[in-house]
């Protein structure tokens, strides 16, 4: 067999990672709720063949709960990241192409949001919206747009001054036409990579805010809930309640990060020929 070249390897990796993440989210979504219901006959079991990640003090299967929780986190992360990224795209383009006062106001908000620690702002927003799914999604979405906004603003400023955009204007094209035909396609790669790299952040922050009790309600199987519940039991020696869900969370976050990096390698022209 021919040795695989770098691009093939990268594409394979991207497909595999995306596959794993899709399987986790689908598995959680389609999972029979009976699988993670309390079963008092099998309480506090350490990991074994029947229960890979063990069971908790109510006899719930931790593997199924973890998968369900991760799936919830991925869904939530998707919503928040997509919302955030589109907000960044819109604000970035407006900021750079309208300029003047709009640019100043948007840049001010970017600095403002970036200046406040993510977690604190996230807690405030989530709490004031009554916690729960809505609070977390809106909270995460509203705290994650500034970085990408800055990147997109810079890109737009650059392309706006390209000769072909200026020429387009002299052919009588309107600003709207130029934005649709020249500017948005130009920032698309940055946007996609930025979107993917928002995922791990969104997921971690969702788990974090839930862990601290400002997020999802206690009865939802979310990673944050699982971890905070389990911490109470760690002193009784039930290490598996924290260990496996924690490892899985880190793994998913790293997979998303890897996905983003690899997509970047494929899109970025400076590394595309390697």
């Amino acid at each position: 067999m021919k040795k695989m070249n770098r691009r093939t390897k990268t594409v394979m990796l991207v497909i595999i990672i995306a596959g794993i993440l899709l399987i986790i989210s689908a598995a959680g979504l389609l999972m029979n709720p009976a699988l993670y219901e309390p079963n008092y006959a099998a309480k506090k079991l350490p990991p074994c063949a029947a229960h890979w990640f063990g069971t908790d003090y109510l006899g719930r299967d931790m593997f199924c709960r973890t998968i369900k929780g991760l799936s919830n986190s991925i869904m939530l992360g998707t919503m928040a990241a997509v919302f955030s990224a589109f907000m960044a795209l819109f604000l970035g383009i407006v900021s750079a192409s309208v300029g003047g006062r709009a640019d100043k106001i948007i840049s001010y908000f970017v600095d403002l949001v970036m200046g406040v620690p993510h977690m604190v702002l996230l807690m405030l927003i989530s709490f004031s919206l009554g916690k729960g799914l809505k609070g977390v999604v809106i909270g995460v979405a509203l705290t994650h747009w500034p970085n990408l906004t800055r990147v997109i603003r810079g890109e737009v400023l650059q392309v706006k001054n390209m000769q072909y955009v200026k020429a387009s204007k002299k052919f009588g094209k309107s600003n709207f036409q130029i934005a649709c035909h020249h500017i948005i396609p130009h920032v698309m790669p940055q946007f996609l990579v930025g979107l993917l790299l928002l995922f791990p952040h969104a997921i971690l922050h969702e788990a974090g805010v839930t862990f601290l009790g400002f997020g999802l309600s206690v009865d939802t199987p979310a990673i944050g809930i699982i971890l905070s519940e389990s911490l109470k039991h760690i002193s009784t020696g039930m290490w598996w309640l924290v260990f496996f869900p924690g490892i899985m969370l880190v793994a998913v976050v790293m997979l998303f990060d890897k996905l983003g990096d690899n997509v970047k390698l494929l899109i970025d022209p400076s590394s595309a020929q390697e």
Binding site: N5, A272, Q273
Partner: peptide
């Protein structure tokens, strides 16, 4: 060494 169409070098 250049990429041709898709993944061929």
């Amino acid at each position: 060494k250049m990429y041709d169409k898709g993944l061929e070098q």
